[in-house]
């Protein structure tokens, strides 16, 4: 009740009856943020991800050493005050390499999400909206892709395309879009029968316009949640590709690739393999936590 008497921006956000569409939307976003912030583990995940973005952005300022600088006199030195995470087999500072590696991991994850979400949305909404043989054909294609475990599919594509980060992104995207398409289709099937879609159609809106302005916005929340949660899998798969030598190539400080070189020296230098693995674990943990929190806010039907 106190909220009603507040003035200024807070009062505007808490007004019991929104005066405009913009205010209603702002209030919804505000409530969502509040719900998200109330979930401590989700908040922790988000904060960690934001930190990663800052670290990636400011890598040259934060990293104590040049990640490619070899120092053969300081090979495989254990963690110390000078090298917090120790050095690798060429004397490079592992902390600095991990810091630069965040750039690669974020690059792969964001680019893959940027490809997978629109492709999945477009294919899924078109299949669900038009139905009939379009649906049949598109969903058969989705089924074929889903018939492979995503790592196997990504491996096969990356072998065919050749190793490298860009090709890894293409391969990961090819493996990750089908579940999104299936989800968007399922959402579309429930939306296309609704009255407001019928109303739009009677007003003479074209199919494309209905899909763009009525169907896709309704699918967005669940797709965003799913894509976020899938990013954890993408990060793990990308690391797996790097580990097998099919992702980013040395001397690039990609975490999976660092792990695979660390493997050779693991028995007497545990930190070389342990540190990048912890970085991968924490990142995918943060994505999972943030994604779970996002789901609670955006997708109330779940659970």
């Amino acid at each position: 009740m106190d909220d009603m008497h507040q003035h200024g921006f807070r009062g505007w956000l808490a007004a019991p009856v929104p005066a405009s569409a913009a205010q209603a939307r702002a209030q919804q976003i505000w409530l969502g943020c509040k719900r998200f912030a109330a979930n401590r583990s989700a908040l922790a995940g988000l904060v960690f991800l934001l930190l990663l973005v800052i670290v990636a952005w400011l890598a040259p300022l934060i990293a104590p050493y040049n990640p490619f600088q070899q120092s053969l006199s300081a090979r495989l030195t254990p963690p110390s005050a000078a090298h917090w995470f120790g050095t690798d087999e060429l004397g490079r500072d592992i902390l600095s390499r991990i810091i630069y590696g965040t750039r690669i991991t974020l690059y792969i994850a964001v680019l893959t999400a940027g490809i997978v979400a629109p492709v999945g949305l477009i294919v899924g909404t078109i299949a669900g909206y038009f139905g009939g043989w379009i649906d049949l054909v598109l969903m058969r294609i989705v089924d074929v892709f889903l018939a492979f475990p995503s790592l196997i599919l990504a491996l096969a594509f990356v072998t065919a395309l050749g190793p490298g980060i860009e090709n890894a992104v293409i391969a990961l995207s090819l493996a990750a879009w089908p579940p999104i398409a299936r989800l968007a289709r399922a959402e579309t099937l429930t939306i296309r029968k609704s009255d407001y879609v019928a109303a739009m159609r009677m007003q003479g809106a074209s199919h494309l316009r209905i899909i763009w302005s009525d169907v896709i916005p309704m699918c967005l929340p669940s797709v965003v949640v799913r894509v976020t949660l899938n990013m954890a899998i993408v990060i793990l798969t990308a690391a797996g590709l790097g580990f097998l030598g099919l992702g980013a190539q040395p001397p690039s400080p990609e975490w999976g690739a660092m792990l695979s070189t660390g493997r050779e020296f693991m028995m007497n230098a545990w930190w070389v393999a342990a540190m990048p693995g912890i970085a991968i674990l924490l990142t995918s943990l943060a994505v999972n936590l943030a994604g779970d929190g996002l789901r609670d806010v955006l997708d109330p039907r779940h659970d």
């Binding site: 690391a239 797996g240 545990w270 393999a273 674990l281």
Partner: peptide, 18 residues
């Protein structure tokens, strides 16, 4: 479970061996 599906299992394998 959360740790289980966040951890790269090849890394767990390496750590286990170690």
């Amino acid at each position: 479970c959360l740790i289980g599906y966040s951890a790269p299992n090849f890394w767990l394998g390496l750590m286990g061996l170690m």
